[in-house]
Amino acid sequence: MMKFEFNSSEPIYRQVAEQIEDAVASGGFEEGQQIPSTTEISKEFHINPATVLKGMNIVVAKNLIEKRRGLGMFVQQGARQRILEEKRNSFFEEFVVNLVREARNLDISEDELLELVKRGYKR
């Protein structure tokens, strides 16, 4: 289910792209499945069709969905794995690197940090 934050500083077209990617990553849209059209999304959420198309084009450019002339947009094979890899890389760069840096600043050893992470998983 798509949900848009119209008061967010993030542009709507980027939210469209992220919503589609998130739906593919979570299995909401399966590989080979047709996704809602630009017109369907724009009507359902009262978004300008050009804005929806701009967001969809981002996902097309990443080779996650493909346009099939006269048929619509479909999730490409391997799209879920590519999205998960991208998200894992982003997680590493945005969170893990900073976590390790902060742990070093606090004189937390690697072993202590691993124990803290394990403790976090148990919660």
Rank of each mutant, 00 (worst) to 15 (best):
M1C: 08
A79N: 03
E110C: 06
E110M: 12
A61S: 15
D111S: 15
Q33K: 10
G70A: 08
L64G: 04
S42R: 03
S109H: 04
M56N: 05
V117T: 10
G120N: 05
V24W: 03
N105D: 13
D107N: 15
F29N: 02
G27A: 09
K67W: 12
R69L: 14
I12R: 00
L71C: 03
E94R: 11
G27Q: 10
V59R: 04
K67H: 13
N89V: 02
Q76E: 15
L114N: 12
Q76D: 05
N63A: 09
V100R: 07
Q76G: 02
I58R: 07
V117Y: 11
R88F: 14
I12Q: 02
R101N: 14
R123D: 11
D107C: 10
M1P: 14
D107T: 11
N63K: 11
V97C: 04
G55P: 04
E94Q: 12
E115W: 09
L71M: 13
A17G: 07
I58Y: 08
E40C: 01
F91C: 00
N105A: 12
M2C: 00
I12S: 03
N105H: 11
V60T: 10
V75S: 05
E30L: 14
R104E: 15
K43F: 11
I58K: 09
K54F: 00
V52M: 00
R82V: 02
I108T: 09
Q81W: 05
A17E: 08
S9C: 05
K54G: 02
S37Y: 05
E40H: 03
G120D: 07
G32Y: 06
V117P: 08
G120M: 06
Y121W: 13
F6T: 07
I58W: 04
R101Q: 15
V96H: 02
E31V: 02
I12F: 01
N48R: 07
A79H: 03
F4D: 03
E86A: 10
N98P: 03
R69E: 15
K3P: 01
M73R: 15
H46Q: 14
E30F: 04
V97G: 01
N98G: 14
F6C: 01
N89H: 07
T39I: 10
I20V: 15
F74L: 00
F92H: 07
I12M: 06
A50V: 12
V59I: 08
V96Y: 05
R80N: 02
M73P: 00
G27K: 08
T39E: 14
R68C: 05
Q77G: 06
E66I: 04
A103M: 09
Q33G: 05
L114C: 09
A79G: 04
A103D: 09
Q19W: 01
V52F: 00
N7C: 02
L116T: 08
S26V: 08
Y13S: 11
K62F: 09
E115A: 13
R104M: 12
G72N: 06
L53G: 03
